[in-house]
């Protein structure tokens, strides 16, 4: 049988796709599938085969108050970091997009937290938050105010973590907003100026809608980061005190590598994946329709 030109082309395309498909399958889909399978079984003891238990693992998980505590922490963490870091990044981008002296320097300053590895950043904040010698408590002391146990107080620790995350993320998101702002033709502002459009109105009628694709992109990234980032917990709190700063992924890590409970870890992972999938679907169906892509 001879290959037609069309067939050949298809084969060629498939071959080009193969390396990427192979890597994606091997390192993304295969682990996902095996995690889902793992979450449906109980491990066998002493060489016995794993026992299929259906959704029992999920039932146990949902009955576990610690899971709900961690989930609630993560929700607070998401609500605390996402809107704040996005608003801050947009504000910073608007500021440095204008003609101002030392603009390059300011841009770099905003961007520095992003280049810093999370571990290094966490170490810096460790110094800010330290109870006796910490920068924040020293500053409070200078004003005659009593210090706080930023990372040790269960009522405060999560918010301390949130503040540092915002500091770390805002500079990164600023970069996307800055790029998007520079893609907006300056004539639009001039045309609006000729009609006496106020700055406020121009922002809400023109700039913000034109930034919508970026906002969506940043939002998705921020969401993923809210469940993905755990490095700072290792340095700052290890999920403590009393699980006050324990987040979902850190909890997965604890289950898998501290308690050696692979099944629970797999179950939580699947729950996280499902939540992210729902969020992504909402994004693509609801928000995309109202967004203007150029």
């Amino acid at each position: 049988m001879t290959l037609t030109a069309h067939r050949k082309l298809q084969l060629y395309g498939a071959l080009l796709l193969l390396p990427a498909a192979l890597l994606l399958g091997l390192f993304a889909y295969l682990p996902t599938i095996s995690t889902v399978i793992q979450s449906l079984f109980l491990p066998g003891f002493r060489g016995a085969p794993p026992e299929f238990v259906g959704l029992d693992n999920y039932r146990y998980l949902f009955e576990d108050p610690k899971f709900w505590l961690v989930a609630r922490n993560n929700l607070i963490y998401a609500l605390g970091t996402i809107p704040t870091s996005m608003a801050l990044s947009l504000a910073m981008a608007l500021l440095v997009n204008r003609q101002l002296p030392g603009r390059g320097l300011v841009r770099m300053a905003y961007f520095t937290p992003t280049i810093l590895p999370m571990i290094a950043a966490a170490n810096i904040w460790m110094f800010f938050y330290a109870p006796q010698i910490g920068l924040f408590n020293k500053l409070l002391g200078a004003f005659g105010l009593g210090g706080m146990n930023w990372l040790g107080d269960p009522g405060v620790a999560l918010y301390s973590i949130i503040v540092m995350s915002v500091w770390k993320e805002a500079g990164f998101f600023m970069l996307f907003y800055l790029a998007a702002l520079q893609a907006i033709p300056p004539e639009l502002k001039e045309a609006a100026d000729l009609e006496g459009t106020s700055r406020w109105r121009f922002f809400w009628r023109v700039t913000f809608p034109l930034l919508m694709p970026t906002t969506l992109f940043v939002l998705i990234n921020a969401l993923i980061n809210a469940v993905r980032v755990v490095d700072h917990l290792f340095i700052l709190t290890k999920g403590g005190p009393n699980n006050a700063t324990n987040l979902l992924l850190y909890y997965v890590y604890e289950n898998a590598f501290a308690f050696f409970d692979r099944t629970t870890a797999a179950t939580i992972t699947v729950v996280i994946l499902l939540v992210l999938a729902v969020v992504a679907t909402l994004k693509f169906t609801l928000l995309d329709r109202r967004t203007h892509y150029q």
């Binding site: 033709p185 004539e187 045309a191 203007h292 150029q294």
Partner: peptide
């Protein structure tokens, strides 16, 4: 006064 720009400067959205 009003102005017509070479690039038209229409609001794309």
């Amino acid at each position: 006064l009003s102005m017509v720009f070479q690039s038209y400067a229409l609001f794309p959205h």
